[in-house]
Deep mutational scan, measured.
Amino acid sequence: CHSECLGNCSQPDDPTKCVACRNFYLDGRCVETCPPPYYHFQDWRCVNFSFCQDLHHKCKNSRRQGCHQYVIHNNKCIPECPSGYTMNSSNLLCTPCLGPCPKVCHLLEGEKTIDSVTSAQELRGCTVINGSLIINIRGGNNLAAELEANLGLIEEISGYLKIRRSYALVSLSFFRKLRLIRGETLEIGNYSFYALDNQNLRQLWDWSKHNLTITQGKLFFHYNPKLCLSEIHKMEEVSGTKGRQERNDIALKTNGDQASCENELLKFSYIRTSFDKILLRWEPYWPPDFRDLLGFMLFYKEAPYQNVTEFDGQDACGSNSWTVVDIDPPLRSNDPKSQNHPGWLMRGLKPWTQYAIFVKTLVTFSDERRTYGAKSDIIYVQTDATNPSVPLDPISVSNSSSQIILKWKPPSDPNGNITHYLVFWERQAEDSELFELDYCLKGLKLPSRTWSPPFESEDSQKHNQSEYEDSAGECCSCPKTDSQILKELEESSFRKTFEDYLHNVVFVPRKT
């Protein structure tokens, strides 16, 4: 048989008469490798580009789960590009990614509803959504962080984005990388972005840091009482949809009607710091009717980097990364020049730590249904340095008659930039024990000054392991946590139920 035959053949030295091919099969003959313009397919066939392209389009058009959109890589027609490569849609070739590779997620039936953290986790790592997304989240724990972890990498949506009755959302900033909504599939009414009845939605994105392009379709905003109209108009300008909307697409009466839409800028007039305090004062603000001013709200939190936005980490279910302080308005003076500047002394802060701070007014709604208010920009203030805590785990070892090696770990709280350490030492008198000992005694162990690591005695271990207080009263049991108490109650309830079950099964009433 021919060298490319495997198993047997019907005619000697003829690659077209093989029972099976050793390498690849091409047009009725066995070959060692697939010549151009053919590609290896499933490690035994040679196919042309049209064959591989037909497989790709067949799966793409069917949208069946589990099928493969075949691509070409290293002269092979394979189910998908290997790690580190992405497909070129024009020629199906796998090309190296520039940075992290995109991950295209194809949605069944063309859309997916995100109504819980669990459903959001199914899209973790996706960068391109081939379909439409509907966000409908009523509640949950730590929602802002969970949504950002699972949806934060999405850069492109081919269909539309719909935010509907998501009472738990305060902001859409968890879509931190969303840059493009194509609108290839539109919501009824030709809408590519749809926001309806979101009672706590206050911000779409921080438009000073976020760009969003909507290729096709219109915007729809109705019944978002805490979303200011200025935020919607800003989205029109940034996304390129200005002029597409009709009169009733953006409701003037049901958007922002319960919001404090600040239209003035508060400026800080005085800032002073110490290692654990920050004193702030800002310019006074009074609405047209000074009785509408209820006070100020001061927001602050630790910020290692200057990239904080107002609604980071917030949701309507209680999660809030900001510390909020309510401040009463100052006494009002008739003389504008003698107006008191409101302020606040922030206490209990960490030394040498940068804080993000902003302040906003708290006002009631005027009778004319106009909203007044003022808010400052987010500023960054760093507390002063102070003395560091003591170095940890000092170790001293003498390696000769004239040297001592000293080692330690950095302090747990540096409280500033540590530039150097101060080492103090003092000579001590020799131990009298060394002169009084009889060095001729056998088995004498000389006193040693070398360091030995501390260890816990058996008594201390027994005390720590004991669940009861000892007789001397030195140790006591740790208080039980809520989960331990709940577990004990469940076990007790189970024992009672099981005992009742045994009584009912074992003891049967005697027939009379």
Results as ranks from 00 to 15, higher is better:
residue 104 V to H: 09
residue 107 L to A: 11
residue 108 L to G: 11
residue 111 E to A: 15
residue 115 D to R: 08
residue 115 D to V: 04
residue 125 G to P: 04
residue 127 T to C: 08
residue 128 V to I: 06
residue 128 V to E: 01
residue 137 I to R: 00
residue 139 G to K: 14
residue 139 G to W: 05
residue 140 G to T: 03
residue 141 N to L: 12
residue 143 L to V: 08
residue 145 A to T: 07
residue 147 L to K: 00
residue 149 A to Y: 12
residue 150 N to T: 08
residue 152 G to S: 03
residue 154 I to Q: 00
residue 155 E to A: 03
residue 161 L to M: 11
residue 164 R to C: 15
residue 165 R to I: 10
residue 171 S to Q: 11
residue 173 S to P: 03
residue 177 K to M: 08
residue 179 R to L: 09
residue 179 R to A: 08
residue 185 T to S: 09
residue 187 E to L: 10
residue 192 S to V: 06
residue 193 F to T: 03
residue 193 F to A: 03
residue 194 Y to V: 13
residue 195 A to M: 10
residue 197 D to M: 03
residue 200 N to Y: 11
residue 203 Q to T: 04
residue 212 L to Y: 03
residue 212 L to C: 04
residue 213 T to F: 09
residue 213 T to V: 12
residue 215 T to F: 07
residue 222 H to P: 00
residue 222 H to T: 15
residue 226 K to Q: 07
residue 226 K to G: 06
residue 230 S to T: 05
residue 233 H to K: 13
residue 235 M to A: 07
residue 241 T to R: 09
residue 244 R to I: 10
residue 245 Q to E: 13
residue 247 R to F: 08
residue 248 N to M: 08
residue 251 A to H: 12
residue 255 N to T: 06
residue 257 D to Q: 01
residue 262 E to C: 11
residue 263 N to T: 10
residue 265 L to M: 11
residue 266 L to I: 05
residue 266 L to E: 00
residue 273 T to F: 12
residue 273 T to L: 06
residue 273 T to Q: 05
residue 274 S to E: 10
residue 279 L to I: 06
residue 291 R to I: 01
residue 292 D to I: 04
residue 294 L to G: 05
residue 294 L to P: 02
residue 295 G to H: 03
residue 296 F to Q: 01
residue 302 E to F: 13
residue 303 A to T: 14
residue 304 P to G: 11
residue 305 Y to P: 08
residue 305 Y to F: 14
residue 311 F to T: 14
residue 311 F to R: 07
residue 313 G to C: 02
residue 320 N to M: 09
residue 320 N to H: 10
residue 324 V to C: 02
residue 330 P to R: 15
residue 331 L to R: 09
residue 337 K to F: 04
residue 340 N to V: 09
residue 342 P to L: 14
residue 346 M to L: 11
residue 346 M to S: 09
residue 347 R to S: 13
residue 347 R to A: 03
residue 347 R to P: 10
residue 350 K to L: 10
residue 350 K to Q: 15
residue 351 P to I: 03
residue 353 T to A: 10
residue 354 Q to I: 14
residue 356 A to N: 01
residue 360 K to D: 02
residue 365 F to R: 15
residue 373 G to R: 04
residue 376 S to N: 00
residue 379 I to F: 08
residue 381 V to A: 05
residue 381 V to Y: 08
residue 383 T to N: 00
residue 383 T to G: 00
residue 384 D to N: 14
residue 390 V to D: 04
residue 392 L to S: 12
residue 395 I to Q: 03
residue 397 V to S: 12
residue 400 S to V: 10
residue 401 S to H: 06
residue 404 I to V: 12
residue 405 I to T: 14
residue 405 I to F: 15
